[in-house]
Amino acid sequence: MKLHLKVWRQSGPQDKGRFELHTIDGVSSDMSFLEMLDVLNDRLLAQGKSPIAFDHDCREGICGSCSMMINGRAHGPTRGTTCQTYMRNFHDGQTVVIEPWRARAFPVMCDLVVDRSAFDRIQQAGGYVSVNTGGAQDGNCLPVPKDDAERAMDAAQCIGCGACVAACKNASAMLFVAAKVSHLGLLPQGQPERAGRVLAMVAKMDEEGFGNCTNQYECEAVCPKSIPADFIARMNRDHLGSSLIPSE
């Protein structure tokens, strides 16, 4: 099939950027979206032009690198990451608009590549259990109810791709932070630092310039790992409790 691509090009963080039009034919419906871009890039290189920069790595939907807005939808028309979006979801002659994630906290670095290090900094603010290597007790000394472990895993499977921020009209990182806070908050290992963790991570989130949650759940709708927005309520509860009732 033949597609008309309207791709965002931006040479660096200071560049204003613009859309560039490309027409690509011979696209197979079994290609992934990124493979289609590979083909386009090969053609650009053959013309000595600079290829479109985009983040990608594992190409199996788990590393969370790929990050683009395709026709106004984070990661593209189906749920899952961009690398797991297949061209069978597009039709011949379609115009496809490809944009980078847009958020103040995710500045564009080049074409479709954005800087998501704000996510790392939020995790550095408290997304861990303070335990040093060595000296841990036997793993079975700490029973964890199966349901808690499952729910913690529901939250922990976040891949940190940033689609939640991209899709939110307020560029809010609440689903990401909620997943991180809930993963440890639901497990016994996370209890000693629970109050401090949620306060520190939320404070960092605010400081990084993400927007606020207006409970519209666009994040949940595009999350490649289907992380439910229930976790946001859980974090709200955790945060309200921790901030209103100071620990001793």
Binding site: K6, E99, N170, A171, S172, F210, Q216, E218, A221
Partner: peptide
């Protein structure tokens, strides 16, 4: 919230709202 997204998308497709 307004400040959090200084540059708007050219196209944006709401799904859940």
């Amino acid at each position: 919230n307004k400040k959090a997204r200084p540059i708007a998308y050219a196209t944006h497709q709401p799904l859940a709202s």
